[in-house]
Amino acid sequence: MSATAPTAGTPALEIHGLEAGYGKIQVLWGIDLTVEAGSFVTVIGANGTGKTTLLRAVSGLVRGVHGSIRAFGQDLHGHSPARIVRAGIGHVPEGRQLFPLMTVAENLASGADYLPGAAREITRSRATVFELFPRLAERQLQLAGTLSGGEQQMLAIGRALMSRPRLLLVDEPSLGLAPSLTKAVFRALAEINRAGVTVVLVEQNVQRSLALADRAFVLENGRIVKQGRGSELLDDPAVREAYLSL
């Protein structure tokens, strides 16, 4: 995990008036959001409210974005995903986006190979990833496409960690996973955060993600409608009714 201590006071992520979408379809309508360095932040919301688009806008996968996005004080607006990774932002994307015909080891190496700083630390980063996910160490020579869903998710997180990010964006890691695996993945995310990496988690598994979060945001129709400490929102009757069906 990142050895760089977050600069005191500078937020890991500052978003102002963010508008984004695909072609003529606008998805995000003026998002304001600040993530303190070192914190664990969760964004919850129903399907299609723009959670994924929010992460994609930060990591540069969505083009034609309006508004400002700064990470650790650095302006990211309009940069390519490749440059944004270099700024210390890892993204575990929706659908994992692994290289299916490469082995687990090759997928992990790819996470560091093209980033000068990370390439020097490749052995150490790999050891950290294997410590976090011993399963991956056992399957190093297996093709990523033949892994189970849970293992693929671990590999996707592992690959993003290989870039030694200071900020990790994680999109729906629990999607399609058995409850026991979901638990393991969430435990790993908490551990990554404890090691000093700021985590922004987008999830439909509201119960678990709110329990982990220092701060949480509720997204509805492309707007943030509620925010607070994770535990606060977990107790909020409206949130409980809308997302926990309690």
């Binding site: 990774v85 994992r96 986006q97 692994l98 290289f99 015909l101 996470g111 190979d113 690959r159």
Partner: peptide, 18 residues
Amino acid sequence: RAMRAVAQNRVGASLVGL
């Protein structure tokens, strides 16, 4: 390796810094 990565998954390739 970079070419294979791009061929196998364009989004994944851009996210690893290519």
